[in-house]
Simulated assay, not measured.
Amino acid sequence: MSAFIYGLGTGFSLILAIGAQNAFVLKQGLKKQHVFWVCLICALSDSILIGLGVTGFSKIIQQYPLIVDVAKYFGASFLFFYGLKNLYAAFKQTAVLNPSNIEPESLFKIIGLCLAFTWLNPHVYLDTVILVGSISVQFAQDYIQFAVGAMLASWIFFFGLGYAARFLLPLFQKAISWKILDFIIAILMWGIAVSLVI
C-alpha cells in the first residue's frame, strides 16, 4: 500500500502546477464543452505515459533525446499560436458571455487540441516517463501499485478540474472575466513556449 500512496502523492505533486494542458481543461470546463472527452484524453494519455515510464521506456527516451527535442519545438510553436488565439479573444469579446451562448466547437477539433497539449509538451515526457519511471525503480517489487497510484492521481485531478470549473461560472457571467482568463492563458502559453526553447 505504501507504494500506491507514494505513487498517488508523486502524481499529484507533478500535475498540480498550472500548465498549458490544465488551463485548457479549465477553460473547457467553464465552457461546458466536451468536458468528459477532454478529461478522458488527458487522464488516459497520462496513464499511458506513466505505464511506459515504469516499464523502462524512460531509458529509450534518455538514449534518444531527439524525441523530446521534436516535441519541444513543435510544442513551442503550437503554444505560441494558441496564445495568439487567446489574446485575440481577450480583446475581441465585447458581449456578456455565458456558457449557453458560447459558439460550440466540434468534438474533433477539441480532441485534436487536447492531444496536442498533451503529446507536444516535452514536460509530459520528462515528468511522467522519465521522472516517474526513475522514482518507480525504488519499488522494484511493487512498481505496479506505484504506477496505479500515479495514474489515479491524474484521473482524479483532470476530472475534478474539468467538472469543478462550473462552480466558478458565477464569476464568468461578465465578459471582463472571460477577457482576463483569455489574457492570462495567452501569457501562460507564451511563457511556457519561451521556456521550452531557451
Rank of each mutant, 00 (worst) to 15 (best):
F12E: 01
F12G: 01
S13C: 04
L14Q: 04
L14S: 04
A23S: 15
V25Y: 01
G29R: 00
L30Q: 05
L30E: 06
K31M: 15
V35P: 01
V35I: 10
W37R: 09
W37S: 12
C39I: 08
C39W: 08
L40Q: 07
C42M: 11
C42R: 05
C42T: 10
A43I: 00
L44T: 09
L44Q: 03
D46I: 03
S47Q: 06
I48N: 00
G51F: 08
G51I: 06
G51C: 10
L52C: 11
G53I: 02
V54H: 00
G56N: 12
F57I: 06
S58G: 08
I60S: 02
V68L: 10
V68I: 15
V70Q: 01
K72C: 07
K72S: 09
Y73G: 06
G75P: 04
S77K: 03
F80E: 05
F81H: 12
G83I: 07
G83N: 12
K85F: 12
A89Q: 14
A90C: 13
Q93E: 14
A95Y: 13
A95E: 15
A95P: 07
I102E: 12
E105T: 11
I110C: 12
L113D: 14
C114P: 00
C114M: 05
A116Y: 09
F117I: 01
V124N: 00
L126R: 02
L126M: 14
V132D: 06
G133H: 11
G133D: 09
G133A: 10
S136M: 04
